[in-house]
Simulated assay, not measured.
Amino acid sequence: MTKDQFLTRLLSRRRALLAGAAAVGAAGTAGLFAAGTGDTPKRPVLPAAAPPARRPLKPSAYRLQPLTGYGPPRAAPRRTLVRHEPLLKVSGRGRTMVLTFDDGPDPRYTPDILDTLAEYDVRAMFFVCGEMAVGNKDLLTRMSDEGHTVGNHTWSHPLLTRLSRGRIRSEMERTCDVIEEAYGERPQWFRAPYGAWNRAAFQLGAELGMEPLAWTVDTLDWTAPAARTIVGRVENGAAPGVVVLSHDAGGDRSQSVRALRDYLPQLLDSGYHITVPRRHYA
């Protein structure tokens, strides 16, 4: 076989191989469009489309997204126990006492009382009336900032035993709303005006999440005695767990302001710890 004949055969075989490969490729491609029976072409199966990309949330929207899977489940809040009589004393370590002030806030006397408490780094309780608080919200804000406890003393200081259940609820609820707005949280304690409690007051107070607190030592400062008389009543009644009742509104309370300046340092020097009570849930 000559060289030319050999080259001619080689090229012919190469063309045949290329033609066969092209035919196989065409058949495979046709299989993608015409499979099964009949000649109707079918569209190729494509992978599922990815979900559309989520638009980024605005910074404020992130706060609306619930967080799940982090930390223990939140327990339902416990209901406040419905008591049949108010608490008179508080528990605490050592010689613990509580100072309470009713009927305010009054811009003529409450700031001076707060100044004295701040001077000795002491916390107290203020049972406020809604009609006084609504015009002196800055004083409630100060009480909150300085760590004092604000309680509910009704809206207009009525005798609850003469009111309907609906009126009692209104007196309490309106005051709760004002306290929450100015103080930052709803009150956890309430005190009936004149110490006049009834079943409705206990039940409604519990429904609003409040514990009833009365007092152990009454300074009777509402009768406007001399400051030294108020000081004597506090010092004679001082004992562990005692709750002292004074007033920062409802009349001339200048003697109450002066008395606090005298008996507070004496109580501290005698080893008493002046504090605010903690809630004890049932």
Results as ranks from 00 to 15, higher is better:
127 F>K: 06
124 A>N: 07
127 F>H: 06
205 G>D: 00
225 P>I: 07
86 P>C: 07
167 R>K: 13
142 R>M: 02
160 L>G: 15
224 A>K: 13
15 R>K: 10
166 G>L: 11
272 Y>K: 03
40 T>E: 08
47 P>R: 12
11 L>S: 08
167 R>G: 12
101 F>Q: 03
165 R>N: 08
19 A>I: 14
36 G>P: 01
94 G>I: 04
123 R>T: 04
75 A>S: 07
247 H>A: 11
176 C>L: 09
203 Q>E: 14
74 R>D: 04
154 T>W: 01
30 A>F: 09
168 I>L: 04
64 L>Y: 10
47 P>E: 05
58 K>S: 12
33 F>M: 11
142 R>T: 11
64 L>P: 07
68 T>N: 11
218 D>R: 09
142 R>C: 01
72 P>T: 10
61 A>G: 11
150 V>F: 03
65 Q>T: 15
204 L>R: 12
101 F>E: 02
122 V>R: 05
187 P>H: 05
243 V>Q: 06
38 G>F: 07
81 L>N: 06
154 T>A: 03
237 G>P: 00
246 S>Q: 13
27 A>D: 01
94 G>A: 05
34 A>S: 14
23 A>Y: 05
103 D>C: 04
208 L>N: 05
49 A>D: 10
116 T>K: 03
38 G>S: 06
30 A>Y: 09
115 D>M: 10
165 R>Y: 01
107 P>C: 05
197 W>R: 08
243 V>Y: 05
164 S>K: 03
185 E>L: 04
156 S>F: 04
74 R>N: 06
226 A>H: 13
270 S>H: 13
211 E>P: 02
57 L>F: 13
245 L>I: 00
40 T>P: 08
6 F>K: 14
93 R>V: 15
269 D>Y: 03
97 M>C: 09
110 T>V: 09
104 G>N: 07
41 P>W: 07
102 D>P: 13
6 F>N: 10
174 R>G: 12
54 R>E: 15
105 P>M: 01
206 A>Q: 06
51 P>K: 13
128 V>K: 00
161 T>W: 01
180 E>P: 07
177 D>Y: 00
210 M>Q: 14
46 L>S: 11
149 T>R: 10
